[in-house]
């Protein structure tokens, strides 16, 4: 396959109910979605359920997918994370909170930074950047992103004041930005 279809072309094909397009999107992003779900859930079979559900929802709702609001990759990954966190909370018998995808969450264009990091020669780059964060900041970031905790829950779980958690989340992203920029990655929009 030398002429790969773009993500937008695949969405258009999905809107024509072409199963092959779903297969191609799965081949492209299924591994990323599964890895993310696995990271959140720590369980392969639950991660499979999440990924199946997310891709099947895309198949069912392709008609209403609006590419101008964000890429299909961003949507698939955001959905995989949300559904995983939803599963996690259900399993922990906690009250479910609203996990509806806020439309604004992937409206903004994140593709430029993504392709820079994804295409960077060294794939360990981002992991290294995270590893270089101060432990307390990395922990707050991971609890929020992979654990799906709110800042108040993080404050609770780590036994620090809410204001400290806010600061840690902000500093974690700031430090991550600096570390990526020191590797020649442009993070400004």
């Amino acid at each position: 396959m030398t002429n790969e279809r773009t993500d937008q072309e695949l969405i258009a094909a999905l809107q024509r109910q072409e199963v092959q397009a779903l297969e191609e999107l799965y081949d492209r992003f299924g591994g990323l979605a599964y890895s993310l779900a696995f990271k959140v859930l720590g369980d392969g079979s639950l991660a499979e359920d999440v990924v199946q559900e997310v891709f099947f929802n895309l198949w069912r709702q392709a008609q209403s997918f609006d590419g101008s609001r964000g890429s299909v990759r961003a949507w698939l990954l955001a959905s995989s994370r949300h559904r995983s966190i939803d599963f996690l909370r259900r399993r922990q018998a906690k009250a479910e909170r609203d996990v509806e995808l806020s439309a604004s969450e992937f409206r903004l264009n994140t593709d430029d930074l993504w392709s820079q990091v994804a295409n960077h020669l060294d794939h360990g780059l981002l992991r290294q950047a995270l590893a270089q964060l101060p432990e307390s900041q990395r922990q707050a970031l991971e609890l929020a992103y992979f654990g799906g905790l709110t800042q108040a829950e993080i404050a609770d779980a780590t036994d620090v004041p809410l204001g400290t958690v806010k600061g840690r989340l902000r500093l974690a992203l700031e430090k991550m930005k600096d570390l990526l920029e020191s590797q020649g990655i442009r993070t400004a929009g």
């Binding site: 299924g30 591994g31 890895s35 993504w114």
Partner: peptide, 25 residues
């Protein structure tokens, strides 16, 4: 948001089992 969007790339990449694709299709 762009920084958060690349966080999935920091995750150790795992190959999903073949049955997942079969089931989905």
């Amino acid at each position: 948001q762009a920084l958060v969007a690349v966080l999935p790339l920091a995750v150790e990449q795992r190959a999903p089992p073949a049955r997942l694709k079969t089931r989905l299709l």
